[in-house]
Design a protein around this nucleic acid. Sequence first.
DNA 1: TTTATTAATGCATATTTTGCATTAATGGAT
DNA 2: ATCCATTAATGCAAAATATGCATTAATAAA
Lengths: 288, 288
Amino acid sequence: MDLQRIKYFLALSEQLHYWKTAEKVNITQSALSRQIQSLENELGLQLFERNKRNVKLTPAGKFLKEKWEVELSELEYIHQFAKQLHLGERGTITIAHPDSISASLMPDILAMITREFPQLQIKLVQVLYENQLEFLKNYKIDLAITRDINSEPGIRAKKIYSDHLALVVPLEHPFKSFDDLSTESLKQQKFILPTNDGGSSYSEIIQALFKSYDFVPDVFLHSEFGSTIIALVRKGLGIAILPDSYMHHQSPGLRFIPLPFKTDLLINWRADDHNPVLANILKLVFEG
Amino acid sequence: MDLQRIKYFLALSEQLHYWKTAEKVNITQSALSRQIQSLENELGLQLFERNKRNVKLTPAGKFLKEKWEVELSELEYIHQFAKQLHLGERGTITIAHPDSISASLMPDILAMITREFPQLQIKLVQVLYENQLEFLKNYKIDLAITRDINSEPGIRAKKIYSDHLALVVPLEHPFKSFDDLSTESLKQQKFILPTNDGGSSYSEIIQALFKSYDFVPDVFLHSEFGSTIIALVRKGLGIAILPDSYMHHQSPGLRFIPLPFKTDLLINWRADDHNPVLANILKLVFEG
DNA sequence: TTTATTAATGCATATTTTGCATTAATGGAT
DNA sequence: ATCCATTAATGCAAAATATGCATTAATAAA
């Protein structure tokens, strides 16, 4: 059954006149007549009661007119929605990102996305460092913002930002600026550092930093969660090294001392992911 | 957009394999391939992500699969429903009938209808005698059961039943049987009779009855409603003449004395009414 | 590298739809 | 009653569309 036929029927059911209707829908009266006939044959029922003079809906025709009007507009809506999915203007995307940028980079990115694609639904998740690529490969997330360079096949990555590292100390701490740092003074500090899992480029940078001062830090505690680390520093339990993106978090009682080391932020996605939503978001992130 | 195409799409979206699907829907792989392509062109979007080896739904395709499945089954249901309307197995019909047969003939007719056409919706109404044909012509009712022969153009009628008239008296009344009736004894009675509107063949029969006893009745009250008349008779306010169909109403305290006069029941409908429901009901009423 | 698998495509054929011209039925006017 | 204007249906040829067969091109697996 062709939907066009149903549209012809609906037009005729309004006009109840073959000639006028035929003109309206841009076919000849002959074609219209036969379209209605085929529709009736296909359904095995009569839609119109007609003689050579008058056209009138049968009860079944009246019923179908009402129902089909609803169904056709429903289908119309569905098709428009699908078109938006196709164009990547609608849909859902799940993004994992590090805690550090939840008050700096993420708000910017999200504002940009909702400005360009207001219909997109975005799910933000925080994923443990070691799970990020696995979740990406298993379609649990579609986009991962990480601080690590990966070399997974099937995953593409691109740098989107670069953070300075900063030494985070309580306000009352004697370290006021970078000049106060020395091997001697650092040796006396207790450190709260990210979990050292060996593979993370972020950890490696921190290791390099300590190496440049040529000492092994006294690590009081490891945590994977930046917000945990900040809370502990504020309580005076130690000092930490974090990306200075954390400065954008509302953290009274803390001092960030910038260090001459940088940590990159990379955006990761499946190379074979053809979801148009992804393509739109990547384009937006890279090109503004 | 042909619904058949959508069915092909749905089949392919299950199998995700052109050959197998083509076989299943009884066309060649070539035809299927092109049907899917036209569908994609028509919608202006991609339904499947495919290379020469694999077929996979796109997000839009996945969405449409779910929605179209629902819509198609909805349409299926609508078409079946319409078919039933066409066959007169579904639909609504409004029937007017006299109060007298609401406990005798009507239950029989209704039982018959619901047995044969359980999906039919029947509205029963009581319409004042003088409005019956007007309501029928104005499509307020579809079927009128009357006791009057009409000669309206456009209205067809057929006799379906014949009632005896009965004299209705309270149980304690001296009239016990037809033999107790005489001009003398009747002259002493107060009568409660139907409204005498002149045109009703029912009233005319009652007039003929009185004429056969050669007297003019002392009429205490006229009412168009049989149940009102019965209530008044039971209270001893007079005696009445009613079709003996009323015997089937639960009316303790009354005696029905059959009279040798008959009143016909006719069923009336619009001659040009092609509602299949009507045709079915008429057939049922006439042929059992 | 080869092979088997599989979606797409060129082409001829079959089917369906369309438009033109005409027919047949019907309501209204004379 | 009769004629006329209107209007839905229909025969026919042309156009558009769908189908099947055979082949091609791409690719994953052996």
